[in-house]
Simulated assay, not measured.
Amino acid sequence: VEVRTGRVSVAVADQLGKQNMISTREREGILLLPNQQAVLARKEIRLVKTLVKEPVLLSETAPNQPKYSFVFEATPAPRVFRTLERAYGLSIVFDEELLAKCQFTADLTDVPPYEKLDIICRSIEATYRILDAQIIVDGKGCEPYL
């Protein structure tokens, strides 16, 4: 199940649950938000929550969503990540204090979301990984410009 707009709750069917011992999480379900998906791992009868392959801008699927600019000039990395979070409805986890001195300058207007993350992370010497439905950014921080 992939979610484009709104919220969707996904649970394992009772019939499947009676045949196997399943966890409360699978029985009660998980909540999915835009740009998230759930996949049923059949062997374990487990729901795996993650991000969709190609997240779309929330403004493209919901008319009441604001549009964001992806033109950054000497913008602190935390602000860049917050822009991506709001624009795509993503959860990006990072050490705000550590990355506060990292600045980013680029026009990412027509760049796909994961490529945006690649470019941003390379420029601030950081990496990212997707864990469940979150993007985890790891980096060493940046030295301030003199």
Rank of each mutant, 00 (worst) to 15 (best):
L32Y: 13
V111T: 15
E115Y: 01
V137P: 00
A126Y: 00
Q103K: 15
T105N: 12
Y68H: 11
E96R: 06
I30N: 06
V10I: 14
E85S: 08
F72M: 06
P113L: 08
P112D: 04
V39I: 08
A100V: 02
K101R: 14
D95C: 02
T109A: 14
M21R: 12
L33Q: 08
L90C: 10
E143P: 06
F72Y: 09
S9I: 14
V137K: 00
A126H: 02
A11N: 13
A126F: 01
A126L: 01
E60Y: 06
A106M: 12
L33V: 05
P63V: 08
I124Q: 01
S123H: 07
E97D: 05
K49M: 00
Y128Q: 08
I124E: 00
D95A: 12
L31T: 12
D107G: 08
L108F: 11
F104I: 11
K116T: 00
I22E: 14
F94R: 07
T127G: 10
L108H: 13
P76S: 01
P113W: 02
V111M: 06
I45R: 10
S59F: 04
S9H: 12
A41R: 14
P63D: 09
Q65S: 13
D110K: 15
A11F: 08
V48N: 03
G89F: 05
L33A: 09
A11E: 13
D138G: 01
F94D: 04
E28K: 14
K53D: 05
T75A: 09
T127F: 01
L84I: 12
G29C: 11
F94Q: 04
P63E: 10
V137E: 00
Q134D: 12
L108Y: 14
I22T: 15
L32F: 12
E115P: 01
Y88M: 09
C102L: 08
L131Y: 07
R46D: 12
P63Q: 10
G17F: 02
L31H: 02
E54D: 11
P55N: 06
R46A: 13
E85C: 11
G141Q: 00
G89V: 10
T75H: 05
F72K: 06
Q103H: 12
A100Y: 01
E54N: 07
P55V: 06
K18I: 15
I119R: 11
L40R: 04
I135G: 02
V56H: 01
A41E: 15
L131N: 07
Q19I: 10
L16G: 13
F81N: 03
G141V: 02
G29V: 12
V39R: 03
N35Q: 09
I30C: 07
A133K: 08
Q37S: 09
D132A: 14
V10M: 08
T75F: 02
V71Q: 10
Q103M: 10
V39C: 01
L47C: 06
Q15Y: 14
L117Y: 05
Q65I: 00
K67A: 09
Q36S: 03
S59L: 10
S9W: 15
T24V: 14
Q19F: 07
F72R: 05
T50D: 04
A11P: 05
A11K: 15
Q65Y: 08
P113E: 03
D138V: 01
N35C: 05
Q134A: 13
E28W: 04
P34I: 04
F94L: 06
P76N: 04
T50K: 03
A62R: 15
C142P: 06
V12W: 09
